[in-house]
Amino acid sequence: MRILTVAFAGFLTLTSFAALDMQQYEFRALQDAKIPGRCVYSPISYDNVKLRIDWALNQGLITERASYWGKAYGYYPIVDMFSNQVAAICKGDLT
């Protein structure tokens, strides 16, 4: 039983810090867009969208394919500074 508990804890640790792939990123972006108040602010510029996506990619929080999708559709990750995990994915300004 103890071995199973340790193995499960290790699995949770590995999966909780895995980079979001393109399908997960797209799913989260579309889900977060439906939640009222999730991303309440003026949309950020496209240059800022790219900077935030590149930062998350360099931190290993998202995959390269997810970064391409985010840049193509203008969705960028909001990273929690305490857990260093993606808390939400919001829409930026594409103009």
Rank of each mutant, 00 (worst) to 15 (best):
I89N: 05
M1Q: 07
I53N: 05
R65M: 12
L30F: 12
I53Q: 05
I3R: 13
S42M: 10
S16C: 09
W69M: 08
A88H: 13
L51K: 04
K50L: 10
I35T: 14
T15H: 10
I3G: 07
W69P: 00
R65A: 12
R2Y: 04
S67K: 08
Q23H: 06
N58V: 02
A7M: 13
L94C: 11
L4S: 15
K91S: 05
D47A: 12
C39S: 09
T95I: 10
S83L: 11
S45V: 01
V49A: 00
F8Q: 10
V40P: 01
R38W: 02
L57D: 02
G74M: 06
L94G: 09
L4G: 14
Y68A: 09
G70N: 09
K50H: 07
I78V: 12
I44W: 01
Q59L: 09
D47Y: 07
L30A: 06
A19S: 07
G10P: 15
S16K: 02
I62Q: 00
F11I: 15
R2H: 11
W55A: 02
P77H: 00
G74S: 13
S67T: 04
Y73C: 05
Y46T: 03
V79M: 01
L4A: 15
R65Q: 14
A9S: 15
W55D: 01
R2N: 09
A29N: 03
